[in-house]
Structures are given as C-alpha cells and as structure tokens.
Design a protein around this nucleic acid. Sequence first.
RNA 1: GUCCCCAUCGUCUAGAGGCCUAGGACACCUCCCUUUCACGGAGGCGACCGGGGUUCGAAUCCCCGUGGGGACGCCA
Length: 468
Amino acid sequence: MTDKKIIRTRFAPSPTGFLHIGGARTALFSWAYARKHGGDFILRIEDTDVARSTPEAVQAILDGMNWLGLNWDEGPFYQMQRMARYREVITQMLDEGKAYHCYCSREELDALRERQMTEGVKPRYDGLWRPELGKTLPSIPEGVAPVVRFKNPQTGVVAWDDLVKGRISISNTELDDLIIARDDGTPTYNFCVVVDDNDMGITQVIRGDDHVNNTPRQINMLQALGATVPAYAHLSMILGGDGQKLSKRHGAVSVMQYDEDGYLPEAVLNYLARLGWSHGDEEIFSMEQFCQWFDLDHITPSAAQFNTEKLNWLNAHYIKQASLDYLALEVSKRLAVSGIVAADAPDLQGVVALYRERANTLNELANSVAYFYQLPQLDTVAAEKHITAEIVPIILALAERLATVDWTAEAIHAEIEHAVKSNALKFPKVAMPLRILLTGGAQSPSIDAVMALLGRDETLSRIRTRIG
RNA sequence: GUCCCCAUCGUCUAGAGGCCUAGGACACCUCCCUUUCACGGAGGCGACCGGGGUUCGAAUCCCCGUGGGGACGCCA
C-alpha cells in the first residue's frame, strides 16, 4: 500500500500554428509519464495571444494529437475561458502588495531596453513604479492605462532540480518585475501558466527547453501565491536534419504532414520516443512498452537532430507489421489522390502483400503498385536494353502458351522456364522483358507473382499491345 | 552584450570511476541469398571537442577554454 502522489502532467500548446514535431514529442513524453504512473494527462490551450491564436490552429493541434493517439484525460481547457479566475488572482496580488501598477509607456520601455543593451547589461525593467517603503512614486500620468507587474524578489537565488538538466539556479538580480496583465487587462503567459498549473494540480511540468528562463519567474510567483512548486523537466530542442533550428520557414512540419507523406503514427511515435530518450539498446517498441519503460532519468539533456532516414527505417518496419487490411485501405486512399481507382481487378491486398517489403512509406507503396490499375509509362532505356529483337518472338510465343495455362504463379513460372530452356537462355533474359512490358520498369517482385495478380487478360494485352 | 543550458561514430544513442582495446541503431561500404529491385543474413568503416586538475585509475568528477543552443516582449 503506497500513498504516492497522483501524477498530473499537461501539454499546453499555443494555437498559433499546427502541432509540429517538437511539440509532438513534448506531448508524447508528458502523456507517457502520466500513463506510466497511472496519472492524468491534461490538455490546455494557451490562447491568450488573441492576435495570433486561431480556431484552425486549435483544430490542427487536436487533429495531430488524435492522429498520434495521445489521448488526454482532462480538457482541452482554454485560457481565454478562465479570464475571471486570472482577474481574481491579479486583484488578490494587487491587494496583497505582490503586484503593482506600472504606467510606463511602451516607448519608454523600448528606450530603456535599448540603452541597457548598448551598456552591455541584460535588459530589464528598472522598477520605476515599484512601490517601496519610503519611496515616492512618480505622479500618475493622465489617460494612461497601466499594466500590472509582479513584484519579483530582488535578492537571493531561485533554484530547482530540473528532472532533465539537473540543478539550475538563477539569481533574482537577473530577473525583473514582469508584466502579468497588459494595459487592456488581459493576463500574460507566465502568469496564466502559474495560475493554471497550480489550479490544475500539475505535478510535473514537462516542456521545451526554451522555457528554462521562464521557470524562475514562475517559481517566484508560485511562491508568492503560497502554491506548491511542481517538478520541472525541460526537454532540449529538436533540430532539423541539417542541424539548424526548426522554424516555420525551416522544416518544422506539421505532424499531419507525416500522415500525408505516408508515415504510420506508430513509426512517428517510436521515432520520437527515441529522440532524446533511450532504454538501453531498444530501438523498436510499442507505445504500450514505451509507457512501461518511460522515465525522465534517461532523457538526454542535449539537442537532437531529426533524421529522416531512421524514421524511414522505422516506418518500413511498421509497414511490414501492419495488417493487409489497413495497408490496402491506406493505399487505395493514396491512389485515389492520384486519380487511380483500385478496383476489384487485381486484388489490392495481394498486391500490397507483394510490395510491402520494399516500401518506406505508404506513398511509395501506393506509387509502386499503381501500374496494376493503370497502364504504366514505359522505361524506354530499360526497354531498349532488354527487349531485343531476338527476344520478342520468344516472348510472343510464351504469350501464346500462357493463353491456355492455369493462371497461377507456379504454372506461369513453369511456362517461363520452358521458354528459357527451349531457347537455351538464362532466366533473366526472359523475365526482364516481361517485367518491363508489364510493370513499365526494370524492378519488381518475382515476375510470375506479378503476372498471377495482374490477371491473364491484362498480362497478355500488355504484352501484345506493346510488342505485338 | 548579459544570463542560462549543452558537448560520445555523419545521425540517434548506451555509458552514472575500473566490466570501454567505448556497445547498439540508422546511413554508408563489402560479401551471401537471388529472376531485376528490395527484404533478409554475415562482415566492415566510424566517436569520447581541447587543456588542466582530482584519483592507483576518468568518456564518466572539478576548473578553464572552445564550439553550439536558448532566453532577455504589454509572444507563448
């Protein structure tokens, strides 16, 4: 009987764009941590930036989460719907002297920042309007709506034991009195996070590394509110394949793009799990297994570079594992996009079974299988090389015999052998021209298996219309 | 500029002082299998950023340097 604390984690994206690969990993780790400990995973939409948040982005994030199968236990909560609560806390902090009004204009602040930069010090608010014992504040300017600032401690250090990076400490002298409410009264990010994480009882804040600098501010506010400080785990960022930072402009693709590109969610999940986390030498594992193994102790503190080759390898693996049912469905959807109808004609499951071992993505699979349903373009170079004048009559004679044979791969194979033997040739001499005639190119699975699936009529028709 | 963080094969990583002449995986190369291409199998190439300490002993601990990244918003 253990009375261990209930674990509650959250994923808190801002709806200013799609769910990208870095966010997906953060969500995955938070989700897995909750699952591992039988806790709750909460989804919270941080939409206080009214100018940049959009309902489309909210939907895109939800779509991404759903595609990956990262299910949440509570939420989605929307910060814009919690305004009353934020106002309440701001009022309380104002009343208790933990926050104060600041009447500085944006211009004044910009000028201050610029001056500090050129002086080589860290830009920060100078505390002009900070009330202090025995200090006379400037007189309140006419018609200026004030912002609310948090009265950050001016001495001491804020430190925490980051679950990924170890102990981090920052001196309060590095911090300034951050704005917690804008001049229009709306609360800002750092403040909302503090109120929400506290109200929602978050025990482990697992988030991107770019929030390390926000953490001491949040801890200070939490302490001012007399709240419990959660544990923090800061994940380092994911770099693009070229080692450059991911950005809208630069490779930060939506997870849904991976769906479109023919990746299975299992593969993306497995890949992401191994980006920055490890369990010995384990490379391929299910999410069920992952949730059992996952821990914060084995997360790498350094940044990781995204590697499509490895994702491809995993994807190929999951394609080999997938059910024919699923594969056929996905392939037919993708063929349809190219305007190809995978009719009943060649059995799609059989076709997919023949090709699944040579595809990295579902799109590749669909692509390589298209010729079964649509006359392929002929690879003229290959055709010229393999379909020689000598071989044409032999192929035609073979076609003649194929017209009456049992239409099975075995029987077809026997006929090809017959053509090979009776003409004293090597197998590829006959197989290659057939392959090119039927599939359009020089690469395919066993040609007899291809023919068996293609069907007698289509096979003979393709041979005869091209060299007949 | 100031503060914070990071540093093992090309890439993802194992490694928590001796088990490391540094292990696995992707990629790459060679060979095998073979009806072409794949798949699969067997090998191979390939790394502890540099310098000082500490220690009998350091990839592992400490310091400095170098390099990279992040943050310095009335964005999140």
